[in-house]
Computed example of a mutant assay.
Amino acid sequence: MKLLNITNRKRESYRVSFRHSILFECALGIAAITNKPLHDSMEKSKVYWSNLRENLSPELQAALDYVEKHNTWKTLLQLCHYHHCDDLQEFLSFIEELEESQLKYYSLPYLGKGLQEMRRQASEGDKEWCRDLMEATKEHNFFPDYIQFVCESDTAKLKVHLKTVMTKWYEEFVQPSELEIYKMLETDVASKQEMGKKLTSEQLVEWATGGIDYRAEPNVQEVLLIPQQIYRPWNIEADMEGSKIFYYPVADESIGSKDRYTPDYFLVAKYKALGDEARLRIVKHLAEKECTLQELTGLLDLGKSTIHHHLKILRAAKLVDSKDGVYTLRKQALAFMEDDLQRYLDR
């Protein structure tokens, strides 16, 4: 289908901003240690998380059990966005001073402009609106139960829990290496901002997150990028009023313990992925047009299982995407490789 554009309207974009905080790292750490199904796929091993939890104080272990049951890490992250600070005591005071409806409103997830009134009414104790909010999120893996918990929770008890788990996690896990963590986050943001001078907003988001191709959505004016180490290699996506949020994994080069000769994992993976004739042929075909596995099998003198194996390597290196059985080349990721290599050489 051909399209004749007779408008003068440019495609909508968004601005990109950064924020880093020890408090975000605390909240994400609490989320990470209680997200057991993901422990096998995190940078730190399943054994690491298990041993860490066993060596925490009984009080913190009990608080983390509560987090795991009710997903109150989400509450902590939401509150971090409504009160921007790096000081734990200031954050705890903010929680203590919140009125009941404020705490519940800030805790409930943002579900889009059209559901804001429902969110407000639910936070003020309207049970029918709470049920409607739960129904609106019934396809989500934990939002309905989380919404019910927030709406029905005793505010005083919730405040005690939030302050306890945040304080104890900070004292037992974060505080011993707080300066190193803060420097790492600060270094990573500085490098991303410097790279942002050369890129569009979309390119910057894709580069910072290691492959997320995020396009403008209605009512989203800003993409907020927040660096984190604790959840590596995962990106965590969230929504707030007017903003899309990505808690992205810090680059290897930002971690002080890495020597300057150690290349970034994905830099190595990309060059390894391209260091094979068959995979280069696949890349060439995908550069010309998107293809299904069946189409690639017809184009190459290779078996379907072999091509699938090569595609898996290209996808793991974040050079190829797949959706509904159709493979596409991430051309921007290829374009970034030269800059990423030069950054490593200049380190």
Rank of each mutant, 00 (worst) to 15 (best):
S45G: 05
L329T: 06
R281I: 00
H70F: 14
L3H: 12
F336S: 01
E54P: 00
Y327Q: 06
L23R: 06
C130S: 13
P58N: 08
R347V: 01
A63Q: 03
A156I: 12
H310P: 03
E12W: 00
D126G: 02
E180K: 12
K44F: 11
L103C: 07
Y82S: 05
K289R: 14
P227M: 07
K244W: 04
K46E: 14
L23C: 11
I307T: 08
E90F: 01
W207Q: 09
T306E: 12
L267D: 09
A269G: 00
F94T: 04
L293Y: 03
D126F: 10
K69V: 00
A238I: 02
D276C: 08
L64M: 08
L133A: 13
L162Y: 06
Q228P: 00
S257W: 12
D40F: 03
Y66S: 07
V67E: 09
V283Y: 04
A136V: 02
E43N: 05
Q193C: 07
L319I: 06
S107M: 09
F173W: 09
L158M: 15
K331L: 05
D40R: 14
M42A: 11
K159H: 10
N219C: 11
F91E: 07
W49K: 03
S50F: 09
L23A: 11
D321R: 10
Y14S: 10
L88G: 08
D324Q: 13
R19S: 14
F143Y: 15
I6Q: 13
I181Q: 05
Y231N: 08
W207P: 00
S153Y: 00
S21C: 08
M240N: 13
I236E: 11
E171H: 05
Q116T: 12
Y231V: 09
E186Y: 08
I255E: 11
V150P: 03
E237N: 09
E124L: 08
L199V: 02
D321K: 10
L341H: 02
G298A: 03
E222D: 10
W73S: 14
L28D: 05
K157R: 15
W234Q: 10
C151S: 08
E12V: 07
I255R: 12
E59V: 13
D86S: 14
T34Y: 04
L79R: 04
E12A: 15
F246Q: 03
S101M: 01
R215E: 11
V283P: 03
I282E: 04
